[in-house]
Write a protein that binds this DNA or RNA. Structure first.
Lengths: 212, 212
DNA sequence: CGGAAACTTGAGTTACGTCAACTACCGTGG
DNA sequence: CCACGGTAGTTGACGTAACTCAAGTTTCCG
């Protein structure tokens, strides 16, 4: 059972390449993204402990997206070719993998709704409180300190489908309303319920999730 | 093995309700969508023969999205509670289900990139040629006739995250360039490779897909 | 034949984008 | 210690893609 540790900014997966391994996130933050030929980037989702990397995309072929580490990350490496035997010998694990894939879809659905139909302000509020709630439920953020999401405004912009400048102005308004505080390279959530309200969103009730 | 036949416009799944069944699409077109409280709608993806309905979202709880039939659809009904025993007894099928989930994710990734980062024109071209290529590879569209995608412009608008008016003007330009023809309640693809070019997109090479 | 749904089109508005300049905050090396 | 260069964040002026409103026309269907 190999482990892989990567520094912030490392490319873990590159679109177009073949990847014979799957990973599970053991610790740290990362994100998945795609870019167009002229450099426009869209961040698809964020990776937190418990998430699976590499399932997305046609299981055996080239990766359809890239993955980059946002903080130092620890990954658990798993050989793709062992997947079929795992399915044969551990149906419960197989079921859990499907559960994870379904949850990822569910998050992507919500992001798509957000980018397609919410205003800049709603989108920003949604994203921050979404990440906050994920961080809380994965134990990365505790009541006592370490309340900060390790992002730059460029990441936020590329997640929301907005320009950097407009993202900055939007975040400023959220900060001026006391909902967040923006630090260098990070965002602190000051008023989660205010953000939920601004986003008109509630996180779905999670059924007990598998460990993997 | 129960079958379900529904007419165009029928709500197959409603967000927020519990659904003890999964479905497989045997024939026809449908789509998945979410709506905000004030009625803004985002279409998430389209459903064609071979697609699974209801896997998305936390497997056992309330549905996180709605599903509506675009044409007459035939569905194959499957009880959710039988899923675990299927995983135990048919690991290959289980693997195929995961494959389908991964492919759905892959499509959502591309849609998110599209809505977040592509221009209106690119988005429209992408959507139409995406649907066209899916229709072709599922055998719904043949060289000899029946080249038409069963959509209204409102569907296109709600998929692309655009207003109806702007969608209309964008489709008009595509039609004027000879790439498509818009009929009432439908779109005919005239020049697929021109659309691919306008969208700056190529469909990913599919590994052989399972039947299910 | 009438009414509803789908599609069009033009005019005026706005949310968001682009450009450009500036500040603040590092970490590095002289 | 300061000079520096790079990254991140901030702000204002201006431009434009896309939105809203409003009034058509066309097509379908009962």
């Amino acid at each position: 059972m190999a482990e892989l540790v990567v520094d912030p900014g490392t490319s873990v997966v590159v679109e177009g390449e073949r990847h014979p391994q799957l990973y599970t996130v053991l610790s740290g933050w990362g994100f998945r993204y795609k870019i167009l030929e002229d450099g426009r980037r869209q961040i698809l989702n964020y990776l937190l402990p418990g998430d699976l990397i590499g399932l997305q995309g046609n299981i055996m072929l080239e990766m359809q997206h890239s993955v980059e580490a946002l903080t130092k990350m620890t990954l658990c490496v798993f050989e793709r070719e062992r997947l079929m035997t795992l399915y044969q010998n551990h149906p419960t694990l197989a079921y859990d993998i499907t559960w994870l894939a379904a949850r990822e879809e569910s998050m992507l659905d919500e992001h798509l709704l957000s980018v397609g139909r919410r205003s800049a302000m709603e989108r920003a509020a949604y994203l921050l409180v979404f990440l906050y709630s994920r961080a809380v439920s994965s134990g990365m953020i505790t009541r006592a300190g370490n309340q900060t999401l390790p992002l730059t405004q460029q990441h936020v912009a590329d997640t929301l489908g907005l320009s950097l400048v407009h993202t900055n102005k939007t975040l400023r308004k959220l900060a001026d309303s006391g909902l967040i505080r923006w630090l260098d390279r990070g965002c602190e959530i000051m008023d989660a319920s205010g953000l939920y309200q601004a986003a008109q969103w509630r996180p779905p009730a999670e059924s007990k999730r598998p460990f993997i």
